[in-house]
């Protein structure tokens, strides 16, 4: 298990060794690639600034939490654990926010139904809004509604299936 923590550095080592074997100009080529990456980063920065501040406001004002509380009885009625509803709300918006909420949920009992559902939910969804914002800002293209609809369909399916699958497996 500790081995998989080394995955990213190991991939780098593999690339560097392969490059050395093939006698690629490591410093020169790396620099050229890195410069391209930096340019791309600068181009998407303005959109990122706006998106992240909007998400932070929504999260920190408590609006998102209040909304989660509002719909959690209905979700619980449909078989989705009420404790995991806040996670489902924050997950598409903020990675660090979702991680905090997730840790809070599993701190009580990591093997409960709600905790397992939360874990499956965490593992099968991503910070969708952030990803869309960053990926589309990088190509200076406006994300159309269909992009949001299809990604959110996948997220919503993730919510529904997470509870169903946990019921099925345990």
């Amino acid at each position: 298990m500790q081995l998989s923590l080394l995955a990213a550095p190991a991939v780098c080592a593999l690339i560097l060794i392969a490059a050395a074997v093939k006698r690629v100009d490591i410093i020169g080529e790396f620099t050229l690639g890195a410069r391209e990456g930096l340019q791309a980063a600068v181009e998407l920065m303005p959109t990122l600034l706006l998106t992240v501040s909007a998400i932070t406001m929504l999260y920190r004002s408590g609006t998102l939490g209040a909304f989660a509380e509002l719909i959690s009885p209905a979700a619980a009625h449909l078989g989705f654990p009420a404790e995991a509803v806040p996670l489902a709300m924050i997950r598409p918006l903020s990675g660090s926010g979702a991680l905090a909420v997730f840790e809070n949920i599993i701190s009580a009992d990591p093997d409960s139904f709600a905790s397992r559902t939360a874990a499956v939910l965490m593992g099968s969804t991503e910070t969708t809004f952030y990803t869309i914002a960053v990926y589309f800002a990088a190509v200076r293209l406006r994300a159309d509604a269909r992009v949001f609809i299809s990604s959110l369909t996948a997220d919503f399916a993730g919510f529904v299936f997470s509870a169903l699958i946990v019921r099925l497996f345990y």
Binding site: I15, A19, V24, E29, A34, E36, G37
Partner: peptide, 11 residues
């Protein structure tokens, strides 16, 4: 982004 773009170019 800079780091992994560099790595990808090497790869």
């Amino acid at each position: 982004m800079a780091f992994w773009s560099g790595m990808m170019r090497l790869a």
